[in-house]
Design a protein around this nucleic acid. Structure first.
Lengths: 164, 164
DNA sequence: TATTGTTATACTCTATAACTATA
DNA sequence: TATAGTTATAGAGTATAACAATA
């Protein structure tokens, strides 16, 4: 057996490698807006799903409810998100984007486009389009939900995977 | 402005999403061998760079030296890796794959191929080849080193990115 | 009795820095 | 004095589980 499988090929490894690289670069760009990737995911979801509860947000983005508290406290303190009372059920909050939240979302969009252009600088426009189509097919076949980044979870390793 | 940028397009986000998904799935498959992704990266590197020191390994895979100690302790206890004394400089270890290490590396290769087939099930062979070529071009243009997964680092977020 | 949001606590993981032995 | 490897410690980040309010 030769080294073909390690020296070339390897699209799965490349996808993981480039994906982690892309997430890291986007995180750096976001930090200029003092935002984290989960912050951006929440703001983006609230634009199209205004009024949802923290519980709902938690399940949609796969972020633990207790973690959401601190994240939303921060976004609310910065007047990007508002917690309104739900008149139908006073246990639930109704989460909304503020005006500032909408504005920063546009800045996030600009940052995302710049990030994307830099990341895909090696490809032509046509190639990017075709790549995008294939990535969508992979994502759909793998059952990945639109707009839900697994990195939002940040789960630790299980005990069986420890090094000691 | 319409929703085009969030509802379609988005290859950068898809790359990050699919990449994290791929890394997660591969990690699950590796756990059946009681290995972590960094373990696999180390074993793979030691096949082509036998005899290197821990310091060298540390810089090549971007794993912190103090973290390497526990990882290598584990691999050595399991007889997958051997620390030999370097006769030229007794401060350095000379790291080598054992026979068992070579065998498990072949099992890792099989696992990686199964993983790759499952991940890219949506694409034809020709499409996979073309995708691979583009990913290589992106990786090269972005300056990513072959076989070095950024996920090996597992850096925490900087203080400026905290949620509190 | 169940559920939402919150808080306190414990746990896991990592880097920092001190330490030893060699050079 | 500098470097390789090791260890101890402290820090950051997370989930778990108990909690109060409401249904």
């Amino acid at each position: 057996m030769n080294d073909k499988n390690t020296e070339k090929g390897q699209p799965a490894f490349l996808l993981a490698q480039i994906g982690a690289h892309a997430a890291s670069l986007f995180g750096e760009r976001l930090s200029a807006l003092e935002l984290t990737p989960p912050d951006a995911g929440i703001l983006r979801l609230l634009r199209v799903a205004a009024g949802i509860s923290q519980q709902d947000l938690s399940t949609r983005l796969q972020i633990h409810p207790s973690r959401l508290v601190a994240i939303l406290d921060n976004l609310e303190n910065r007047k990007l998100v508002e917690r309104k009372q739900n008149p139908n059920d006073r246990r639930l909050y109704s989460l909304h984007l503020t005006k500032n939240g909408g504005e920063i979302l546009e800045r996030i969009g600009r940052v995302a486009r710049e990030h994307q252009d830099a990341l895909l600088a090696a490809l032509s426009t046509d190639e990017r389009d075709q790549l995008t189509g294939w990535l969508h097919r992979i994502a759909d076949q793998q059952g990945l939900a639109r707009g839900v980044h697994p990195g939002y979870q940040r789960l630790g390793r299980s005990k069986s995977q420890r090094d000691d």
